[in-house]
Structure formats: C-alpha cells, structure tokens
Design a protein around this nucleic acid. Structure first.
Lengths: 144, 144
DNA sequence: CTTAATGCAAAACATTTGCAACAAC
DNA sequence: GTTGTTGCAAATGTTTTGCATTAAG
C-alpha cells in the first residue's frame, strides 16, 4: 500500500497472505485518518467507537504487523530503551540498523539550514537534529 | 559543565546545590567515557565494577537528574509511548516540546543533502530524518 | 474444514516511587 | 544535626505472549 489508499488495502492483504479482518480494516482506516501521529492507546480508543469489543493487544499486534509490512511507520527509537549522550554540543546521529551502532557526526551544510521556510507553525526553534539510518561499513563488509 | 570536563563536575554540583556523591561521580565519569550512547542498564553494569553495591534505580535517578540539569542528553522520543504514522513518504517532523504536537514537513533543501561527506563509516543510507524541537505558534500565543 | 487472528489474562520489560537507613554538608 | 541521597522492594506503565475461542478463506 505504498500510496496509502484505503481501497487497495484488501489487495495488499491478499498479496501478503493476510486475512482481511474487521479489526485490521478499522485500525488501518483510523491510522490513515489521524494525522496527529497517534500512540497505540489513542488508536485503540478511536477504533473502539467502531468495534467496542476490540482488545488493546490486538491494536498493538496489528500496528506491529503493519509496521513490519511497511504500510505504517513507527516514530523515534526502534529499541525500547532510552540512550544517553554526554556530548551536549549540537551534533547528529548515524544509526546502523543492523548492529545498532550510533555514531555522532557534524555538518557545516546542515548548520546553515534554516527550517523557517519549510515549517509554517513553528515559533521558536530549540534544536535541529538529524537521524540517518542505514548500514555501516563494518556490517556491509562482514555479511554482504 | 558545558564543556564536559570531569574536573568541573564538583563546581557544577555546588552551583546547582547538589551533593557530590560517590555514585554521581562514577556515573558521570562513565557516561563521559562511553561514546557509544549507552542505555541505563549498560551504565549500571559499568559503574558496578567500581561501586558493586550501587542500585539500578540510582542510575536511573541520576541519569534523569543529569538530563534535567542539561549535562547529558537523552536520545530519541521524550515520552514513553511509541507513535505511529501512516505517511510513509519521506518527510520530517517538528515537535512542540510544550504541547507535544508533531507536525510533518517537507524540504527541497534537505532532499538535496548528501551526508556521505560528513559520515565516514556509512555504507548504505536508508533514510535521512530531521527532528526539529521547539515551541509552536499556538503555545507561544497562549502562554508567553 | 483449515489456518490464522482475536480476546483474555498473565507475563515481561523498562522505568518510577515510597520509605527507612545513610552519607554529605 | 539537617537535609538530600541511596538502596530496597514494590508499583507503574507500556508492550508482549500463551492459550482457548472465534472468524476468515
């Protein structure tokens, strides 16, 4: 479902060998509709208006499934634990999705970037932080 | 302690009215030393080699304290819950630190950014994601 | 009918908190 | 001595899992 159309959700499920359940349809419909980047609990509350007997863990399971299949995205850190950094100078992070390495980097180019033109509703900017995900040299060399 | 020197840690504590305990000293020393962006558990294991009787919740409490005082930084999402996004086209986020609003934005300028020059150890890039933190217009208008 | 998905309750996990004992000042 | 900090254990909050029941194909 690369284009996010609800109509092709059924086709997508068939292609992936997934059953099209009432719960999955409503969960996907809600996440599509909610532009506010909801958490699982919020999705649960909204879907419950349509399917009162749905359980919270079905919402969790379904969101995880959708994320694995690439039709929705999970924001923030992938792992559950918080990580800390004693480097408090402005810098950015490269994260290797294979080994979990986090590497600091700096960028003259990005320091000159002024987001004001791109973000209309912003009043004051406190920080601009880039997160690059990919594969590090080490992982690429070791296993393809 | 803006410059991250261990020597001035004592001064910093005095200025902030914090007691300089054995635990705080060792926790700060470890986080300074570990460039790999450790989680609380990892810091705990390392500090335990110096102070075997230290408890995990002291590590949590101390890291939280350090973060509040601005001498270390917590990576990733500030809130505990995962959030989901059905918009899977490449885009970036502005996050209001007051009301928690997350707003998508796009940038022609950023799409042209090639991080290769800045990040030496990267082999393949999967995504470049910017997270801007600040105050939104609405929050600024409503309460100073 | 067969297989996968759901709901329930319980578990697992990271993180926080109340409180008495303790250490820093 | 006074006050803030620690360690312990228990609580919290989010997310996951085992299993019997149910619904989809």
């Amino acid at each position: 479902m690369p284009d996010g159309e609800l109509a092709s959700f059924a086709d997508f499920c068939k292609r992936q060998g997934l059953k099209i359940t009432h719960q999955r349809l409503e969960i996907y419909r809600e996440v599509l509709q909610m532009t506010g980047h909801p958490d699982a609990e919020t999705v649960y509350e909204r879907v419950r208006e349509k399917i009162p007997v749905i359980s919270l863990d079905t919402v969790y399971r379904t969101l995880r499934l959708f994320e694995e299949k690439g039709i929705i995205r999970k924001l923030g850190m992938q792992n559950d634990r918080a990580r800390f950094d004693a480097n408090i100078t402005p810098h950015h992070h490269f994260i290797c999705v294979k080994c979990g390495l986090i590497k600091d980097f700096y960028s003259k180019e990005l320091n000159d970037y002024h987001p004001d033109n791109d973000v209309p509703d912003v009043a004051d900017i406190q920080s601009v932080h880039i997160e690059i995900r990919g594969i590090c040299q080490n992982c690429k060399n070791n296993h393809g």
